[in-house]
Design a protein around this nucleic acid. Structure first.
Lengths: 124, 124
DNA sequence: TGAGAGAGGAACCTCGAGGTGACCAAGCAG
DNA sequence: CTGCTTGGTCACCTCGAGGTTCCTCTCTCA
């Protein structure tokens, strides 16, 4: 971030950051980014690969991610249509941190399971 | 993850992971974890520090995070009550990845802003 | 006497996230 | 001529996320 920004510009940037964060810090977006990190996929493939997503949410989330320059959308003008989705460079960088979150989850499943049991006992 | 797990155990672990991921991959949880990474805070401090959160959502999210062993809750038996929140060790590790996401957002604001303009022009 | 302070809990209400299913376009196989 | 294909969009409906407001508990200070 440049230090030579006007206050108005700074404010806009912050608002933008908050909005972007809201777009990304969301279950489906994160799962899609993580799945797409494994390579280019088509719509239907993605729909099957992302556990539990509906085609509506997938389409909706993909458009948001495409708009934010995280996902590339390549349409082949064939019939029936064929659309390839992949991560942009920015998306790939983001994917490494998302992946770290997934790794953290897997590493701490056991710890969390125990923490929950302790917590639930305390409540009765 | 041990490789000597029974299928049922593996399945349970996966379900648990999905649940944990859903708990954490959520705007408020991530913002709280990130904010709390800067140090111990009290409820009201946190409520002010996390932009836009209501006290209900804060309380709700904090309980989930506490149950999952991500957040420590320390009650001082004084009057009026005083409660300190901080991250556990697991929470601190998670925080580094969450923080990476925030850094990514700030680094790519400009890029995303441009991507959006291009996208919006194309649609008309 | 009564107001205020800190950390919530409970009740109530609204609005939008998200699921489901129908529909479409365009060409090819049968 | 029909139906299947893929990648969506649209309309409809439901349910729960989340906001708002009021309550509480105990002590202190005015």
């Amino acid at each position: 971030m440049s230090d030579s920004m006007e206050p108005a510009e700074v404010k806009r940037t912050e608002a933008l950051s908050a909005e972007i964060f809201t777009n990304i810090a969301n279950k489906w977006a994160l799962l899609i980014i993580n799945t797409l990190g494994e390579g280019t996929m088509r719509f239907t493939e993605l729909c099957a690969a992302v556990e539990g997503v509906s085609h509506k949410m997938l389409a909706q989330t993909l458009r948001i991610l495409e708009r934010d320059g995280v996902v590339n959308r390549l349409v082949h003008p064939t019939v029936p249509p064929r659309v390839d989705y992949s991560l942009t460079d920015a998306g790939l960088m983001l994917r490494t941190t998302v992946n770290a979150m997934c790794v953290w989850t897997r590493q701490h499943v056991h710890h969390i399971d125990q923490a929950r049991q302790r917590f639930d006992e305390r409540q009765v």
